[in-house]
Simulated assay, not measured.
Amino acid sequence: MSRTQKGRITRHPFSDTLSSKFYGHPHRPMQIVSQTTSELRLQSVVERQRLMLPIGLLSVVVVGLGLAILAGAVNIPLLFIVGLFGFLGGTMLNDECKSEVLTLDRGADQLRCDRKTLWGTQQWQLPLSTLQDVSVVTRQRRRQKANGNEGTQWFYSLQFVAPGQAPQTLLYSHDGDSVNAAYRTIHDFLRTTHSATSATNAPSNLPSGQGIGLVMTSDYERWRQEIFTRSPEQAGGTSDERDRVYGVLMDMGMLDSSTSQLWAISMTAWLSGEASFFPTPGGAVIGLGSEPQVAEAAQTILQLAQTVLPNASPLPDQALPDQPDLVQFWLFTPGGVYGVADMLQRLRVPSNDWGQMFQQFSLIRQVAERQLDQR
């Protein structure tokens, strides 16, 4: 579970981390331009104040070169310095001027992205009906803080996956809230576009994993035991409503590619808005509910869990995943614990209600990992 300085690429939409090659990324918030029953259009907006620095650099280059020519002081070192500053200013200006319009057109069965740059417009598109996954992906960049410690900058984007085609990703942004809001809007639009089928909406009823061979600390074992003994009142609910979901636990099987060792990630969301993140090898973050976006995600998870409760089954034990990408959901009610298990690829279908719950847990994990990086 160690994280390198450049980040760690994972196979799931929780945290697709890469190193940044340039000076930074634009803030570029995403906005809804238009929304009807047949079409959704979103746009990333260029912030003009962010253009001041690159334009200033280019202006200095032009003025400096002009003065040098008038004074007859042009030489190779000067041209090298001017060229360096000109390249930096031009690269920054090109990056800041990029913008996108994302269109989901139900009538034309098309998902299209028009990306505008200083050099023209680029476009990619996918058939809307073949879209398998929409996920929030993150990018991190390590940097030195003023106090000498290392910190992490986070950038957010949306990724779209369709069979037989390379994943397509929008421009990255500092503004995680606008990206998450765009994701929820797209997800709601797609729910009315894709019909639910038994192949995509019906997970198997019972978790099959036994957690054999998992790397696990004693702290994790104690924490998990406490989760299964927590009362509705402790979670912000009441024992009177026998079928009211007051908590959800999600487990996901993971595999360390360097050692082939199996481990798991567990996360909780409670009716009170509280949440926690606890990998079986350690590295927990407890008490995440103080973050507003986490509390909101936890409430959304509980609402989704209440909706899918009729499709869950009573569970006989506290089994953990025994294979990578096996995902388990445990729904806690005063009348008992219910749940399902399914493989990750089936949960990445936009019309899958369990997949929506999975994506909300992904937001909780993003916050937890940011806190771990800042420790």
Rank of each mutant, 00 (worst) to 15 (best):
L363S: 11
V61A: 13
N180L: 07
V63N: 06
Q49N: 09
Q144M: 14
W119I: 07
L67A: 14
R184C: 07
I265T: 01
S198H: 10
L158V: 02
A235C: 12
E150L: 15
D114T: 02
G64M: 11
S178Q: 03
M1W: 09
R11V: 01
Y23M: 13
E226K: 01
G66Q: 02
C113W: 03
T117P: 08
D175A: 05
I32K: 14
V337Q: 03
F329P: 04
F332W: 01
Y220D: 00
A73V: 14
L67N: 03
K145R: 15
R8T: 11
S272I: 10
D16T: 06
N180R: 09
Q31M: 13
P167S: 03
L304P: 01
S362K: 05
L58R: 07
V294G: 06
L288P: 13
V161A: 04
P54V: 07
D243E: 15
E296T: 08
P13A: 00
G86D: 05
K21E: 07
D251V: 00
V161H: 03
E226C: 00
A73D: 08
P321I: 03
T229W: 12
L126G: 06
L326W: 04
L255I: 06
D256P: 02
W270Q: 04
H25M: 13
A146S: 10
L79D: 03
I212C: 01
